[in-house]
Design a protein around this nucleic acid. Structure first.
Lengths: 113, 113
DNA sequence: GTGTTAGTTAGCCATATGGCTAACTTAGAT
DNA sequence: ATCTAAGTTAGCCATATGGCTAACTAACAC
């Protein structure tokens, strides 16, 4: 299962996010991907490996070309974590709102006494 | 504005994610936060600084205690990026489905000829 | 078979990361 | 005025990161 540390680490680099964006519109092989990022192949390969270890992409080699493909599951894990935290955060703010509302109400009541 | 590199980097560490989770249910001061993570204060402070530089939290000091609070905007930026990529990804899969559907239809038609 | 092409491996380098201790600075408490 | 508590700063250390070049391997093209 995708490890959040690795997934978020993968996402923390612009080159890797660009690769993800490209793969979202369909599989591609490493050469094509690398050409768009002015970077030596071995450097680029490190990014591919990071993405692969975090299970954001999978790749397989046929002949001498390796093609990469996006796996959505890891990204889903990241989204889920964020969504959950947002839920907690928003619930709290709602309760805070409600609390302030009751305070305001009381003051009005007092004011009318 | 929150920088995605920094935001995702912040999220790539379990300690920092735990801090975010705690702050989602309300502000807290650094001492309280640190106590839950068996870690020397200066080490913990580095995490706080990372979170602050990525604008995920803000903090201010009153007297000698510093209290931290979550800022949702940075997390929203991360969520938005993920959502956008998912949109591209899913659109493509839908089109792929549709394409396969038409293929299947054609075959059926041919079969009936 | 000789080249050429697509990846890969090995290894170098500078900087960043994530932990620590020790020593310092204030702010409150007595 | 002292003592204590909450942060902070400085600096050490091992490892990770993100880039590079050079040299190697394995396919495909002629």
């Amino acid at each position: 299962m995708a490890n959040l540390d690795q997934v978020f680490h993968s996402l923390s680099d612009g080159t890797r996010r660009a690769v993800i964006a490209q793969l979202a519109s369909g599989p591609a092989n490493i050469g094509d991907l690398a050409r768009r990022h002015r970077m030596a192949l071995p450097s680029f390969m490190k990014h591919i490996r990071v993405l692969e270890e975090s299970e954001i992409i999978v790749s397989r080699k046929r002949g001498r070309v390796r093609t990469c493909e996006l796996r959505a599951a890891a990204l889903t894990a990241a989204q889920d974590w964020l969504a959950q935290e947002r839920r907690v955060w928003e619930t709290r703010l709602d309760q805070l709102d409600a609390f302030i509302e009751t305070l305001a109400l009381k003051e009005t009541t007092h004011g009318e006494e």
